[in-house]
Design a protein around this nucleic acid. Sequence first.
DNA 1: CTTTCAGGTAAACATATGTAAGTGCGGGAC
DNA 2: GTCCCGCACTTACATATGTTTACCTGAAAG
Lengths: 239, 239
Amino acid sequence: MSNPLILKLEQRDRLSADEKRVLEGAISRVRVVAADEDIAREGERPSESSLLLDGFAARYKIFSNGRRQITAVHVPGDFVDLHSFLLKTMDHGVLALTPCRIAAVPHATLEKITDEYPHLTRLLWLNTLIDGAIHREWLTVMGRLSATAHMAHFVCELFLRLQIVGRTDGDTIQIPLTQAELGDTLGLSTVHVNRVLQELRKEGLIRWQGDALTVLDWERLKAVGEFTSTYLNIQKENR
Amino acid sequence: MSNPLILKLEQRDRLSADEKRVLEGAISRVRVVAADEDIAREGERPSESSLLLDGFAARYKIFSNGRRQITAVHVPGDFVDLHSFLLKTMDHGVLALTPCRIAAVPHATLEKITDEYPHLTRLLWLNTLIDGAIHREWLTVMGRLSATAHMAHFVCELFLRLQIVGRTDGDTIQIPLTQAELGDTLGLSTVHVNRVLQELRKEGLIRWQGDALTVLDWERLKAVGEFTSTYLNIQKENR
DNA sequence: CTTTCAGGTAAACATATGTAAGTGCGGGAC
DNA sequence: GTCCCGCACTTACATATGTTTACCTGAAAG
């Protein structure tokens, strides 16, 4: 079974056999986290970073009044807290949305990689830069698009990101988010999430049954969400 | 005159004399960009990254309908497009909000640093990780706080970030943003920015005259904006 | 089987924020 | 000096989205 991180990186650059071996070897152990459990908690100082091998996870912050905002949704191949290697203290929590298989990569190993494998280091750095690019895109969409457009955009993005790591089934993907969690992701109320989904369905853009989301009209969905994929940096380059 | 990037990094870790020399030497040339000019444009593939030495800059994206969203406001010491070293193509523009002095750092030099100076590499990586942390914080604030709280939060953040690089004058900082630009930053209309500012002034939290913003009641401003500074990672650590 | 409960859906109503269209001031251009 | 013109500021009005409450369904639990 191929490592989804390697799959993800190979969309962006060439990896030498040696580098692949180092990546595979960086995994110290694999653990399973149940749905709705925390993978990491705000305030912690992890000594290893978590690579998501299977399942969905989300980064979130909770305000004093209990309101929650999800700042990232992660799919297999994503490092959910690679940044803790250098930021040291978690400034947000990470939650398993589904049961998750997680590989732990010790920070000591990452430090060794930065000492000895410059190109691989750049690719890990790249990984966090793509996270950042996604954050920026979310900011623009949240700030300037309607709720409906925002939802359409989110669906487009998740579809592409799952496609990269081979987790699509034709035009269908699994989105294991409740409407409440979707609200926390898009900054909307649950009720409004429901309204928006009805609208997208009525327009014949998507079908959503249980966890299974099917894109019925890709072109119009992209148009509604003003989606372009450049920010995902799905391009082979010498980095 | 001390380099604001070195000032910024030294709040987060120790820099050796050698590393400081490398950083100083990385600057190929300094240019001046007039206010309202682009420092970088969407779609470009820069061969060097821009370090802001003086002035204010903003990253922005423009939608087809002309609506603009600012995703980051940069102050001296910030690398406005360090990510272009690895992302290659700019997925957004960078705008000079005031006249800016900008140091160009060739990507070739950055590559050399990643090959030869692992610790310095980690600090540059850290720099982009802090950008990411700020993006996440903006996402939570934009998604879950009121416009007033959002504005208060923004003021708190900018104040601290300017303080780090020695650009505060007591309780006063320079914020060279028009209310329209503030709206583009916070995802609000110009009219509502005005309303919110009036409210913060009436509450005695801030004074804003021209470019000069004075924080009158730091504690209450932080409370209104639900601001805590952890995400800025202003802590010396071994990284 | 029944009970329970999470999650999707719905309607009625409340409100934060946006839109459109202006006024007025102050500083730069000439 | 006068004339612009960008920018802060206002008002009146429109609407997207939030809040509250409730109902319904299917699936898990007992």
